[in-house]
Design a protein around this nucleic acid. Structure first.
Lengths: 366, 366
DNA sequence: GGCGCCACTCGAATCGATGCGGCCTAGAAT
DNA sequence: ATTCTAGGCCGCATCGATTCGAGTGGCGCC
């Protein structure tokens, strides 16, 4: 029996504008409706007459109200509309890798139906400080790209909090959904192709095996201490065909690193391999540059096999490589996130790579 | 609603775990302290005895509590610890541009003291749908990178909401802080250098002038309809020295686009320019490739000037270019964000580019 | 032994939005 | 004119964390 105030009693009195921004309640009061109604008018998820809605919108406009506060909304809804992406390195380094970019692009495609934003994190190892880590970020889900077991602690926090996670190319944990490719099998097929051509003296240029990104000769110690599945799997695939193959470890997937590794492997004509298996196209491109520098003819004197199937700008060769569906991988991860958030438990996905035969491989010269 | 259990009634009984996740209140109850104290124990922003803190942490661990919910925290604090970044194009396109990547990296450096995450947006134009636009995202501040006036509406919403914004290379609005470089003046200096060498027949390869990214000949219509400051300014700088210079417009800053433009400009030996001013290094690299293809010697028969000062992998030349501090630009933007959030009003910053003289420029052959 | 101080802890209010159940009223049908 | 119906609208409680002022215990000092 609350006395309804006279209709005509407008709050014409110029009340002092408070320092605080207007809230939905203010708008509702101004429009003469309840906060609930005003909320419905904005979210459109309930029956509100057009007249009322117009009145609310008008009040909002007069008050300079810019729409519901995303913070309050996400608290109430339990969803923030943000998906976290964890990269293993710092932003600059991560985005120099075309595969990562393509994957990221695929993710945006995959989560498009969510209309969610992408929040970038880097697995810098140092979780301390005031930094907003994965552990304490308002994300609805997380995609881990090539992440090391170092994240186990954070992943555990995600699990506790009930935040779904999807891992691309990395063993983040037992119960984490995996999106991967046939690293091992694909490399084996590539290696078999080289063997079929007649190669026996094969060297490797691998991706880094640990977070320290040690560069140098490929040693059993490094292999054993590997925390990077991608590198290990591709190595194992090559070893299935060339059990004693060895080579160099690059610090990162880049042309420069490939160049350096290529110089080391090709420097001595006496020990020079007839073929090099690089674990990424960028590394392969670097090896090709090294061969060019040293006057080693490709493919006559040296065959080079890559991995990824990216376009390397400025490369003169048509690289023989294992083409992997980077974008599709990202998209699958995005779609998996969507399903997880919808409550449907999706299955892990394994993509396959295809061998593209270009002009950087041929039978050995000897 | 939730029946609070008696004080001494230890919950040793394996009570059925509720479907809901534990909250700070649960932890506090378990630890036998008030919610306030538990909050202080986690945030560390108040005097809590070590014993109490340990008890709270133990209780949290037992309950599987993963720390304060970021949503509730950000609601109360009014800060989310997230900085939004608006890119003008889709993710894939944006990250193919080394300058953008460097800028982004600079931003992360700049906002490091905030410990904030980076939330990516793309200025796709379509704000509708359920998408989390800039207008309704839990961000503390926003950095606009090379954004078009199309964003005016969103920028207005930001202003209303009181969210600080910084613009890099783009006129987002009147009261938006600008971080820019001397696009016009730098290009003029580069052009003057070419004129000093004796060039008079100069062609341009420009960045796109509008969101449509029209590719083709540089027409007065396109110039007039420009919504991209960077392209316009660099064009004007060139025109100050070569008033009648014309050329081609690229659809994006990439080697491929530069290659295409280069082919068009160099195809006919009769009308071939003696120098080409490219508005980015990637475009310049493409032009160099086109020259190589067509057997045009650089710099003997053709001088090429770039802009950006990035390292282009696989480029044989030492490009003459205007080196801009991309990373510093991003860092300045990040630092500006920090200051804005701290309440200190910082000033707009204008960086200057320096002319790096490489081996792609020489006096004309004629 | 008493007084006062200090460090710590507690309770309540608050932030902004939203779901819920029930009440109201306008319009239609008889 | 009266009753029925259904679409709209309302108030309240709640989400989870934080802050502020009040309170309380213990302790030192006179």
């Amino acid at each position: 029996m609350r006395p309804r105030i006279g209709l005509m009693q407008t709050d014409s009195a110029p009340r002092t504008e408070p320092i605080t921004r207007p809230t939905l309640a203010d708008v509702a009061a101004r429009a003469g409706v309840s906060a609930s109604t005003a909320s419905l008018a904005f979210s459109g998820s309930g029956p509100v007459s057009d007249a009322t809605k117009a009145r609310v919108l008008a009040a909002a406009s007069e008050l300079g109200y810019a729409g519901p506060d995303p913070r309050g909304r996400s608290l109430r809804r339990g969803r923030s509309g943000i998906v976290g992406v964890v990269l293993e390195e710092r932003v600059r380094a991560a985005f120099l890798d075309p595969v990562k970019i393509q994957t990221l692009d695929g993710i945006t495609e995959g989560i498009a139906p969510l209309g969610a934003g992408l929040l970038l994190f880097t697995d810098t190892g140092e979780e301390g400080g005031n930094a907003v880590g994965i552990e304490s970020a308002p994300v609805d889900a997380v995609v881990l790209i090539g992440c090391s077991p170092r994240l186990a602690h954070s992943v555990e926090a995600l699990r506790r909090r009930g935040i779904p996670a999807v891992a691309i190319e990395g063993s983040a944990g037992e119960d984490i959904l995996q999106i991967s490719i046939d690293n091992r099998d694909a490399t084996r097929r590539g290696a078999e192709y080289l063997r079929g051509l007649g190669h026996t003296e094969v060297a490797l240029v691998t991706l880094p095996f640990d977070a320290a990104r040690t560069r140098g000769p490929l040693t059993p110690e490094l292999e054993r201490g590997s925390t990077v599945d991608t590198a290990s799997e591709r190595l194992l695939g090559a070893r299935e065909v060339f059990p004693h193959a060895t080579g160099r470890v690059a610090a990162t997937s880049s042309i420069e690193e490939g160049l350096e590794a290529g110089r080391a492997l090709l420097a001595d004509p006496a020990t020079r391999p007839t073929a090099i298996i690089a674990q990424s196209d960028l590394l392969a491109a670097g090896v090709l540059q090294a061969a060019d520098e040293l006057g080693v003819a490709v493919p006559a004197e040296l065959s080079v096999l890559g991995f990824d199937g990216i376009r390397v700008d400025g490369l003169q060769h048509d690289l023989t490589t294992l083409v992997q569906p980077s974008v599709a991988k990202g998209r699958a991860a995005g779609e998996a996130v969507v399903r997880l958030l919808a409550g449907e438990p999706p299955a892990s996905v394994q993509f396959t790579s295809t061998l593209h035969i270009g002009d950087t491989t041929a039978p050995p010269a000897r």
